[in-house]
Design a protein around this nucleic acid. Structure first.
Lengths: 241, 241
DNA sequence: CCTGAAATGTTATTTTTGTAACATTTTTTT
DNA sequence: AAAAAAATGTTACAAAAATAACATTTCAGG
């Protein structure tokens, strides 16, 4: 086997690791050889590359058979329904705060593309969902990225957050306990959640039923701080006030 | 959305989880519909399935953000290669600023997952790419979302941006002209680009050759403000200084 | 039941991709 | 350096796939 071919194979594998797929003609341009040569290369290394109708993908991408990583969100359905209830509270022209977490991902996702509102968020996932809806005005609080929760945090935004005219704040929690209130796993989220709750006209806690009775390390609010707690069963007003 | 379509999508995803790839005609046989319908299904769910010349694969198999519209980015390859050159300038532990635009998307994408650097950005696309690389420290400038360029802007971050210890700034432009300098289409990006250039130790303009001779409405820098201009052909130092 | 809209299927046409044969270049061997 | 071998490029043709236009079916209100 020639050294040239090996070099090309490595360059190809490299590019595939970054881009996922490569069209035959792009691969040829990238490697500086003809399409025919790329085709021949790929054809002789079926264990490294797979060739699908003019496109090259890494062979183990399409290995099939074993499906390890994808652990489905166990309570996805409950979360989805909880958010469907939350969605009913949002009216045109509202300014809403959407907290982070997989639960509120569903809320961002469910917002109709033609509902014109302003949304304030600080989670990358929520932002991605909102970015797909061109009519939504989005304000994102930036800062340092926290991979564990896909959120940003910074001192810069705390003060401005208090000045936005937030109508409704939708907050999630990792744990909800009647005595110990609402809590989450990441301390950096606490000031943001608290500021949002404090400055919003109405705050709602959106969680699925599995969160009740759980206490996480970072406490951030009493249950009575919320107008209602929204679960898959609907909105329950908080007892006291 | 019809329930049939959803059922088919799930069945397809199922089959793909087992087999990795499915040829169009096999998928059609499996689902009991015509090839045309499968094509239409897959085409309308680009986030679940990828369609490569007659073959269907699960979209997250080929993650890495491949743009499916083949003509979506005519200069993708030039941009890709320009960014490959830019990447060589980044050293471990650098603090780099990455501008917005489809060109620098490729840069964010190509950063090796094990290269430990700090990145400052303000584009949603760049942030998404960086979020996939857990070792990268990311700081995102938030603010109001601008759908046209998938960027955020706000006065809050301008001053802090000047205080970050930016080593290298990678800037893109919609137009590059020897006399009229570097320009872009969106005015809100101008203060951010300028601040980044001003506070970075070294700034680089990363563009593909097709941008030369073009002048866009929003001027933001002289060519001599950059240490070099990086294109698919490599880095050219700016003539004057 | 109708009726219209949406979904699906069919067909013909254009475009893209695959293949094979052969020409050319590069490398290796002597 | 010449000859042989390998690798690569080119071309023309065959096959497959993409697309668009139109026909048909299905399904939800009225």
């Amino acid at each position: 086997m020639s050294t040239r071919k090996t070099e090309r194979a490595n360059a190809l594998a490299d590019a595939l690791a970054r881009r996922g797929v490569l069209h035959l003609r792009d691969a040829a341009a990238l490697l500086g050889v003809s399409e025919m040569t790329v085709r021949r290369d790929v054809g002789t290394m079926p264990d490294r590359f797979a060739y699908l109708g003019g496109h090259i993908v890494s062979a183990d991408d399409i290995a099939g058979g074993y499906e390890l990583g994808r652990e489905a969100d166990s309570h996805a359905n409950a979360k989805f329904r909880a958010c469907a209830h939350a969605l009913k509270l949002i009216a045109p022209d509202d300014t809403v705060f959407i907290d982070c977490g997989s639960t509120l991902d569903h809320l961002a996702q469910q917002i109709p593309a033609d509902l014109i509102i302003t949304v304030i968020c600080y989670s990358l996932n929520v932002a991605q969902r909102l970015a797909e809806k061109p009519h939504i005005r989005m304000i994102m609080l930036g800062g340092i990225y926290h991979p564990a929760s896909a959120t940003f945090s910074s001192g810069e935004w705390l003060e401005p957050l208090g000045r936005f005219g937030i109508n409704k704040a939708f907050i999630s929690a990792g744990g909800v306990d009647v005595e110990r209130g609402a809590s989450c796993s990441h301390f950096h989220e606490v000031p943001i959640k608290q500021k949002a709750i404090a400055s919003a006209l109405e705050s709602y806690l959106v969680v699925d039923d599995s969160k009740f009775g759980i206490v996480k390390p970072a406490y951030f609010a009493r249950l009575s701080d919320f107008r209602a707690i929204i679960t898959e069963a609907g909105a329950k007003e908080t007892a006291d006030a």
